[in-house]
Design a binder for these strands. Sequence first.
DNA 1: CGTTTCTTTGACAAATATCAAGCTAGGTGG
DNA 2: CCACCTAGCTTGATATTTGTCAAAGAAACG
Lengths: 228, 228
Amino acid sequence: MLMQNAQTLSPTHPAKPADRWSAEQGNGGAPGLDALGVRMAFARNAEIFGEGEPTTYVYKVVSGAARTYKVLDDGRRQISSFYLPGEVFGLEATAAHHCSAEAVTRSVLLVIKRSALVSLAEAEHRVSHMLWALTARELQQVRTHMLVLIRSAQERVACFLLELAERMGVTDQIELPMSRQDIADYLGLTIETISRTLTQLESTGAIAVPTCRRIVLRDRKALKRLHA
Amino acid sequence: MLMQNAQTLSPTHPAKPADRWSAEQGNGGAPGLDALGVRMAFARNAEIFGEGEPTTYVYKVVSGAARTYKVLDDGRRQISSFYLPGEVFGLEATAAHHCSAEAVTRSVLLVIKRSALVSLAEAEHRVSHMLWALTARELQQVRTHMLVLIRSAQERVACFLLELAERMGVTDQIELPMSRQDIADYLGLTIETISRTLTQLESTGAIAVPTCRRIVLRDRKALKRLHA
DNA sequence: CGTTTCTTTGACAAATATCAAGCTAGGTGG
DNA sequence: CCACCTAGCTTGATATTTGTCAAAGAAACG
């Protein structure tokens, strides 16, 4: 459960000052939420919640990144989404989570009691509409991601890089919070294919990969062409 | 728009008696909706709404089937979902549709004014929660479908058949409302692969295909094994 | 009853996965 | 501060899966 995985910071302690990203930044924002929650730090790969667990909390990324995923019996994992600073996840209309969530890197999350939101929603339509809108936005993003999954490896990786750059609010250079395995499980490919595709994009001059966690978008036009 | 595609029945006419499926049946149901809408018939492949159009109506399948989809620039199409009798689609939190919808076969739909729902929601939390729950359910289903998309062709087809049988409330035999091309675009495969895979499943005795629109589930255990 | 559309099948090509090995970088302890 | 050690990443050779192209067969429709 939650307390077992939360690291270092108790709910009553404020987290250490957030890194580059404030909780307010980012486009997935739901500004009204911030006063309702407490900050909590999670170690790299720490479980945030598991599939089937009660939906006690809703989360907003302050710094770091989170992933939600499902696993098949044979161990294959499909990452549904990554969540970057400012974005909300773990919100469900039902009593149980339909997927699991983990911290991608050491992360600080704003943890909000779901029951507080739900009762607030019963008093104010604005809140009620916000809950609906957050879920609807996520549905839209997942549908868009499905379109990515039917494309070629090059196209998938190009889409991924452009999407990430946009969501991180940068234009030229990405600092990847996630491993190759994470990217592979998000794009429905293997790590080898991810690696080869990055090399390939680098050799055509579309990107540069100075270190394995840093990607320079050298030729956005070429990437956008793949993005279609 | 709506009126151009609706066939034969004016909104004030009741539709001809629904085929095998009543509007109340099925699990995606939202029973309270029925009084609010009018029935309308759509021809095979008629557009119900297009991506980007205003979200004026919400739809519930009375008889027949609908599909929602997105298309890539190069023409590839990804079907997000099929909707069977009793199921609701076209509900969005925003003012514009994020995907397009068409009738798979000649279908009768219950057409409900979105504005009626939204204003009802402002008065009653129960309605408000229903809207949220409907969107959340759809999110869950799309996430589950993403897991299907990372699997092998055999597994995808087996999952599809089992899902359809369950949603149609049958155990032994399926009457497919959709073409091979629809199935292909739903599962991220080509029609040739769909056809070959069905033949293959037939040769192993898992299914029988007496006519191309009828599938007999001969060995559910074998299919479930692929379902994982 | 012919015409058109959809489905099946075959041969081949292309893309991606798998298996195996080597490389790199980051972290740890001497 | 350096050297080792481990994780993660890259690369190569090969196998498998699925897509593509082409043609024939079946079903739906007027």
